[in-house]
Amino acid sequence: MISRDGIAGLVCLVASLGLLALTRGMPKPALVPIGPAFYPRILFVVTAVLSLALVVTDLARRRRPAVPPVRYRLVLLAFVIFGAYVFLLPWLGYRVATFLFVAGLQTALEWPRLRWARGLSVALATTLVTYYVFEVYLSVLLPRGRLTGF
């Protein structure tokens, strides 16, 4: 039987071998005694050996720690909402996207006991405060929306 250590080891093993294959055909530059593929190759071989060792020790082990059950619903939801935020940021612009994100994620986390007033005011405050602090006071230009121009 394989446990999560073994799975992690297998994933790393496959990844390092795949990456090793990608280092083929890199040009050998003038002036530098070792090419750009030299160091990565050492690294991938080391990683592959370590991963293999991890898989082997995992298979050899008899006792396994019990994994406590975890609720992944909120985690998944949070990743999806953050992913949407990152994707929409360049299209909607910082201010619109951030307002929607803060309001949306709060709604998701508080569901079903929502507190609308607090949620929206936190979203609005976060957006405006960060915007003004960064753009006006710290002169860091935040993304403008390609769709909204705002």
């Binding site: 507190r115 609308w116 007033a117 607090r118 929206l120 005011s121 609005l124």
Partner: peptide, 10 residues
């Protein structure tokens, strides 16, 4: 609480 929602959106 709920009745504050709409004005805030506006």
């Amino acid at each position: 609480m709920r009745r504050f929602g709409l004005p805030l959106v506006a």
